[in-house]
Simulated scan of single mutants.
Amino acid sequence: MRSLGALPRPVLLLEVAGIGFLLLSYLSLHGYVTLPAPIGSASAAIVMIFLGIALMIPAAAFMVWAMAQNIAPLLTKGPLPEDKSPTDKTKEKRDDADH
Rank of each mutant, 00 (worst) to 15 (best):
L51E: 03
M67A: 15
T34Q: 15
K91Q: 10
L24C: 08
A66R: 15
L24E: 03
P79N: 09
A66F: 03
L55P: 04
P38K: 08
L29T: 13
P73F: 02
I71Y: 02
L51R: 10
P58Q: 07
P38H: 06
G18D: 11
K93P: 00
V64P: 00
K93Q: 14
L14V: 00
T90F: 01
G31D: 09
I39D: 09
P79F: 02
A17Y: 02
L29E: 15
G5W: 01
L23P: 00
M1R: 15
G78M: 09
G5E: 08
K89E: 15
L23F: 03
I71G: 05
I53F: 06
E92V: 04
P58H: 02
D98E: 15
D95V: 04
A37K: 12
H30K: 08
T87P: 01
S85N: 14
G20Y: 01
T87V: 03
L14E: 15
Y32P: 00
P8C: 04
I53C: 13
I71R: 15
G52V: 02
M63T: 06
A72Q: 12
I57S: 04
A6F: 01
K77W: 04
S41H: 04
R9T: 09
L24M: 13
I39W: 05
D96P: 01
G40F: 01
G40A: 05
T87W: 00
K89P: 00
L4C: 07
A45F: 01
I49T: 12
A59W: 01
P8K: 12
M63F: 00
E15C: 03
S3E: 11
M56D: 06
